[in-house]
Design a protein around this nucleic acid. Structure first.
Length: 410
DNA sequence: TCTGGGGTCCTAGGACCC
DNA sequence: TCTGGGGTCCTAGGACCC
């Protein structure tokens, strides 16, 4: 029998902001952007939640519900730093840690009794360590599975600890709403409601055959989840085994929908450069490029292209992405969002061809130098030669740039 | 209400191959 | 002529999570 902890920070982004500016404490605070901007709420303080504000809600809606709320842009970089500090504390309790996102983690505490005591006691010690060292609140769920611990930490909010004693999982889950199960969102909840399933106990009473027929593979996993089992999918994976990313992407929503071709192309180049920098940081090469286009009115399409060879060179992906853009953007249609994604990674570079090998080498050297500068001076200080001047318009560079790297400011 | 940005996983059809 | 059965890859879209 395993002992799994799920730890979830309470109003994480807001709490970090309060450490930065204690005057925010006890006030309705919203992280995500200004109240009149395009965007959604990333995090809301408990005070703000009293007005019905919750994450993923449009900022403009939030500001209508609570006009005197304090809107802050947020400091993503700082949240990541704190996330690493949290991870360090967790690793001092168990070597088997999975950071599931910036503000939540799974710990495999199986066999740690001699060191930290029984589950509840060790959870209290962990909770105390987080409070003492980081001055942040968190909630902890304990059970024999990731799934139940995750649901338990949610029920333990806020600043609480909840232990589901082995053997009592199904009973404890029974009265909860089906949407408490991670993976059951609005659509599934509605589909289940139409056949009279609203509580987990209703789900548990269903025949597995029925769920399989009705919802496919996912239905079968659902049957297991209703019993508290990590049946199938991500929950079944081992804690503490780091996984490589399967895709890297960046996207941008314009503050106002636009048909400005130069702006659109320059944005695609900028997004691609950010993506490729991260790709090289992983020492990956990507084979597939995907363009995401969202038009006025929110209609969205994606178009992908797989290359003959995997690449880590900006030029190759920029060429592909601009081609996809050219063939899928009707010039009179206003664009709301652009996105660039790469996937199908290999960590080996393909054999350099006789024709392009020399040119690729020059590019790679230039990019390496540029990456170093970006690390030092920050993103956005330099771009591919001519990227912003519309050089890519008809034809992407046929030769290596003579001066691809501009001096950073200062 | 008017909807971000970064991800994962699943489905489903068509191409292509044996 | 009236058409099998897999397997795998590619592409598009959608549900979902934080």
């Amino acid at each position: 029998m395993k002992t799994i902890f799920h730890l979830d920070m309470d109003a994480f982004f807001v709490s970090v902001e309060e450490l930065l500016d204690p005057s925010l404490k006890g006030k309705p605070v919203i992280v995500g952007g200004k109240g009149d901007e395009r965007g959604v709420v990333s995090a809301a303080s408990y005070e703000a939640r009293k007005y019905g504000i919750h994450s993923a809600m449009p900022l403009r809606t939030a500001s209508m519900l609570c006009p005197h709320a304090i809107f802050v842009e947020g400091h993503l970089h700082l949240y990541r730093e704190y996330s690493e500090k949290i991870e360090a504390v967790l690793r001092s309790f168990s070597p088997l840690v999975d950071m599931a996102s910036v503000d939540e983690a799974y710990l495999d505490m199986t066999g740690c009794e001699r060191l930290w005591g029984p589950p509840l006691q060790s959870a209290h010690r962990l909770h105390q360590a987080i409070t003492d060292q980081l001055h942040l609140n968190c909630s902890i769920g304990i059970s024999s599975s990731r799934l139940v611990s995750k649901i338990a930490s949610d029920q333990a909010k806020r600043n609480g600890i909840l232990w589901i004693v082995p053997g009592t999982e199904a009973n404890w889950l029974a009265p909860l709403e089906v949407k408490r199960i991670p993976g059951v969102g609005k659509v599934t909840e509605k589909q289940l409601a139409t056949i009279g399933i609203t509580r987990i106990r209703d789900l548990a009473s269903l025949d597995e055959r029925f769920l399989l027929d009705r919802f496919g593979k996912w239905g079968l996993a659902l049957a297991g989840k209703a019993q508290g089992k990590d049946a199938g999918g991500w929950f079944d994976t081992v804690i503490g085994a780091p996984e490589d990313p399967k895709s890297i992407s960046h996207e941008h929503t314009f503050n106002e929908d636009t048909t400005d071709e130069k702006l659109l192309r320059a944005t695609l180049v900028r997004l691609t450069e950010k993506v490729m920098k991260r790709l090289r940081d992983h020492s990956f090469h990507a084979r597939t490029v995907q363009l995401k286009l969202r038009f006025e009115g929110f209609e969205t399409l994606t178009r992908a292209k797989s290359l003959g060879d995997a690449t880590d060179i900006d030029r190759d992906i920029v060429e592909a992405i601009l081609h996809l853009f050219n063939s899928n953007w009707p010039k009179d249609r206003k664009v709301r969002l652009l996105g660039v994604q790469v996937s199908h990674f290999t960590d080996q570079a393909p054999q350099p061809s006789l024709l392009t090998g020399d040119e690729d080498r020059k590019w790679r050297n230039a990019l390496k130098a540029a990456d170093k500068l970006k690390d030092k001076y920050g993103e956005g200080t330099l771009h591919l030669g001519g990227a912003l001047k519309g050089v890519y318009k008809d034809r992407v560079h046929e030769t290596a740039p003579k001066e691809p790297v501009r001096k950073p400011p200062k």
